[in-house]
């Protein structure tokens, strides 16, 4: 056999091996974290954890029911603020890409994406907490919602731009006005992609702790109003993790496990939405 051919083949196999090892290296931390989390978290996970309020300091038992619902409420509030603005803004960026406004907002969104999340918390603190004079679920929702906007906006822009120009032209040539074309033809075509973008953005903010520190603040009881402080899983995990009690440490692990599970469910949902998009084409 030609030695150069043999060298080439050896090189090919060597590089394939290197790529394979690198993939393993990337997967290792993920698998380690998940297994460790499952091992430590599952032992503290029981029915009480999902249904009971936190117990008194130092006493074993109790759960995180309020924190779980709190996180879901905060995600809901953030979604109410971030999703409409993000989707509509992204649609504008895609359909009117060359205007001065879109250039500025695209740049602003990219800058916002890079702003540390605690600064978003400060923003909501100044905007909501200071005028109302107390911490509230609303403030936490605003902080998370503002974080949603740039991600949702940019992913929406990308997927709406993927809608073929021929689809737009087909609609316009039928005498359908521009706004109806965008709303009834272009956006439905991009729905699956937009939903995926939203899910991923929601999963990202679900685990945010810093923006909630001085907005949602945390709460050991059931929350009655969105104008009152509210519990959230990341906050509760933080509080329990730095506490001196073993039982609370175990619950913190369980909380972390539940949080990861929520994110996982949302991500799988996003995958499902994307796979339907592929089938559609």
């Amino acid at each position: 056999m030609d030695p150069r051919y043999r060298l080439r083949r050896g090189m090919d196999q060597g590089m394939t091996l290197v790529c394979f090892l690198c993939t393993l290296l990337v997967l290792t931390p993920l698998v380690l974290v998940l297994t460790f989390l499952a091992q430590t978290g599952l032992s503290a996970l029981n029915w009480d954890f999902f249904t009971k309020l936190p117990g008194a300091a130092g006493e074993p038992g109790g759960g995180m029911a309020n924190a779980i619902t709190g996180t879901l409420i905060l995600i809901g509030l953030a979604g109410c603020l971030g999703i409409p603005i993000g989707v509509l803004g992204g649609t504008f960026l895609s359909e009117y890409p060359q205007t001065q406004v879109s250039r500025i907002s695209r740049f602003a969104a990219d800058v916002m994406n890079g702003i540390p999340s605690i600064v978003m918390g400060l923003f909501a603190y100044v905007l909501i907490v200071l005028p109302l004079r107390h911490f509230s679920a609303l403030a936490g929702g605003v902080a998370l919602g503002v974080m949603l906007i740039p991600t949702v906006m940019r992913t929406t822009e990308e997927v709406v731009r993927l809608v073929p120009q021929s689809v737009r032209e087909a609609a316009l040539a039928l005498g359908i006005p521009q706004w109806k074309t965008t709303l009834r033809v272009v956006l439905p075509t991009a729905t699956a992609g937009i939903v995926t973008g939203i899910m991923i953005a929601l999963a990202r903010i679900a685990g945010e702790t810093a923006p909630l520190l001085f907005t949602a603040f945390g709460n050991r009881f059931w929350n009655r109003s969105i104008l009152q402080p509210i519990a959230a899983l990341p906050l509760q995990i933080f509080a329990y993790a730095i506490s001196p009690f073993d039982d609370w440490h175990r619950q913190a692990w369980a909380g972390a496990l539940v949080l990861v599970a929520i994110v996982l469910v949302v991500n799988v949902g996003a995958r499902y939405a994307t796979s339907r998009q592929v089938r559609l084409r």
Binding site: S166, A170, R281
Partner: peptide, 16 residues
């Protein structure tokens, strides 16, 4: 465009 319709080079039915 309602009075003057158009058919394009590539078939472009609305995918959804």
């Amino acid at each position: 465009r309602r009075r003057v319709g158009m058919v394009f080079q590539k078939p472009n039915p609305f995918p959804t």
